[in-house]
Design a protein around this nucleic acid. Structure first.
Lengths: 230, 230
DNA sequence: GAAATTACTGACTATGAGTCATTAACGAGA
DNA sequence: TCTCGTTAATGACTCATAGTCAGTAATTTC
């Protein structure tokens, strides 16, 4: 019988609607200032109903984070399925990450919360698992072209692929955070362009991790027209 | 007359006592779970009194952060006043940063809040200024040996000293955060030692930013016995 | 020793997260 | 079409806690 299925579909839609409402409220006011009453009003539902779908305000916030991860995953997937050489696809990932940062800044910001367990006081273990699960899935994506580049002898095989990924990710992520909160200050009063700095440091790191052969085939700067300089 | 002065001294002492109480409560429960009543009890004062000294719970939290910055500044100051060569003192800074992370983990964690303006909803502009001011002071400290190393022709002079500092700092900071929340997971289930990874990536970056002359005098690994590998 | 200043108090207010008894809507079976 | 059971939704309520403020006590000044 299709009734059960319709009900489930409707429930899923409700879930999406709630996330949509939560998104607009959270993005407008931030986690702390947003109230469940605000979200209920935006969703045209009563507050009690929100709690039928999400255990706590923080769980709901992480539901928005999960949606952000979906978007990011999609961008990453596109970046690595171009059929280009592995090294180029690693560059693409850097571009995709920066694109996500630029275009989906609000989602990028929700990651701050996810990445600070400090602040998880009401998060349900289920929701946390869902997030870390999704996080790992994205990491798998990142590792694919890295492993390939190692197999092709372009990246040093003495390094763990995860190590390579983390170095590049951590570097980009740290600088994007800085850009997010202080870009103007750095540019105007210190004269430092953090964006090109990110390009530079990523290039430094990648260069240090490539093999002689890799550097011969793809000298630093090969993809410099690219957006992020990864 | 010394009465005014005595009163001021007493007020300062009170301030310190409150910070001490806040510290123990915040470190035990985290910002969100800690209540002003908890802190008042720990300080053996009424809640109202706390508000005579600090405008909000978040201001009080940042007061603890400021204390952490004091500690860090002290460690940094020691690190760069050894009379050693400039490059070595840059290494020392890396060590000092890691020492701060290890020994004063709780203070290190308070920086998460300071570094996420997202979460500043009740912070007074005065307190924020105090924090950013102190932050800059510490940056000045970091820049000293970097400028010196450039003057001596050991670090590329095409780079802005601030750029060099930010690259190294951002890299270390990002990885320490990762270590802070996931060291076990990374080590056990992924087989990646984040600490040595931090050493490696710092070395990569520094190497890329040194001059030929610098690398001749101080080849990578010169200070490898050092704690952080910066 | 009266008046003024300063430090402190804790009962009170306001707000907002989360709950739960109740109501409404829907569908199944007779 | 009438019941009865099930599921979805409601909103008034509780409870916790940040922040306030009128009042008290201690200290200083003259």
């Amino acid at each position: 019988m299709g009734i059960r299925e319709r009900r489930e579909r409707e429930k899923d839609e409700r879930r999406e609607e709630i996330i949509g409402a939560a998104e607009s409220v959270f993005f407008g006011k931030g986690l702390a200032e947003a109230t469940m009453d605000d979200i209920a009003e935006a969703a045209e539902l009563s507050k009690g109903t929100l709690y039928l779908y999400y255990r706590s305000k923080e769980d709901l916030y992480l539901a928005v984070t999960l949606k952000g991860m979906d978007i990011m995953e999609e961008l990453f997937r596109k970046a690595i399925s171009t059929g280009e050489p592995s090294i180029k696809r690693i560059y693409n990932l850097g571009e995709a990450y920066y694109e996500f940062f630029e275009k989906y800044r609000n989602f990028f910001r929700t990651f701050y919360f996810f990445e600070s367990p400090q602040f998880h006081t009401q998060v349900s273990p289920e929701m946390l698992d869902a997030c870390t699960g999704h996080d790992r899935k994205i990491w798998e994506l990142v590792l694919t072209p890295i492993r390939e580049a190692q197999d092709e002898g372009l990246l040093q095989s003495s390094l763990d692929p995860m190590e390579i990924g983390v170095m590049l990710w951590s570097n980009s992520n740290g600088l994007m955070r800085l850009i997010d909160r202080h870009a103007d200050h750095w540019k105007d009063s210190l004269g430092v362009d953090l964006f090109s700095l990110m390009r530079k440091s990523n290039a430094f790191l990648l260069k240090a991790m490539m093999t002689e052969e890799g550097l011969k085939k793809f000298p630093t700067g090969t993809f410099e027209h690219a957006a992020t300089g990864l």
